[in-house]
Design a protein around this nucleic acid. Sequence first.
DNA 1: TCGATGCATCGACACTCGTCAATGTTTCCG
DNA 2: CGGAAACATTGACGAGTGTCGATGCATCGA
Lengths: 116, 116
Amino acid sequence: MAKLVATIEPREVCCPSVLASPLDSTQAADLARGFTALADPVRLRVLSILNAAPDGEVCVCEFVGQLGKSQPTISHHLKILSAAGLVAGDRRGKWVWYSLNRERLADLQAALQPSG
Amino acid sequence: MAKLVATIEPREVCCPSVLASPLDSTQAADLARGFTALADPVRLRVLSILNAAPDGEVCVCEFVGQLGKSQPTISHHLKILSAAGLVAGDRRGKWVWYSLNRERLADLQAALQPSG
DNA sequence: TCGATGCATCGACACTCGTCAATGTTTCCG
DNA sequence: CGGAAACATTGACGAGTGTCGATGCATCGA
């Protein structure tokens, strides 16, 4: 991943740096997609709930209860987070358990690394 | 600023953690505004150009030339970045020189810190 | 003072996004 | 099989966003 703050040498992560300059259009678009997934308060709260879950998994009904949004709205946000690679769902019986992809989150964080 | 990934103890930064759970609505909204500013490829490229600028400053016409967007469009994006506290403009004569606020960028990065 | 330059603002447009009610799909249980 | 529960999908709506041309404002040079 590209980094926003430039480090001349790419790291082991996949994303371009926000600071690599000039960030080319493709890298910028990829990074922007990642940050777009983070650019909503409901989705940020979903991530925070997942992060704090003792067993690392939370089912959809739990989000609906805690976030005060309709079930379709929660499902919509989970789909966006899933498409961004930030969460993953696992169906077990009637429930779907979502977990946090910490590596993907770390990639986005790395893109904001102060320029080296 | 709150952190998305929870660290029980707040750090010295202003932002709530994305992972503090559950992130309350106000903190989530604040963080989301920050990431919204990063959720556009043109703005990410603006930041990368600023980060790579030898003297830390770039005038508007430089962005227009490098990014292939109209001058009003660039001005629009600079206004959004400025409102988010990520850049600051300084008028000197006919030119306005923009610089990167690395502290603000570090705050957003800290909000993605893996949960501790 | 006057024209030119650099940048911001305005107005308009197409497009995307967040939201919810209604409906569809999958799974479990009796 | 049939009903209920959990979740996804669809359709629709209002609100917000990115873009550009036209225009306004400030500054500099002649």
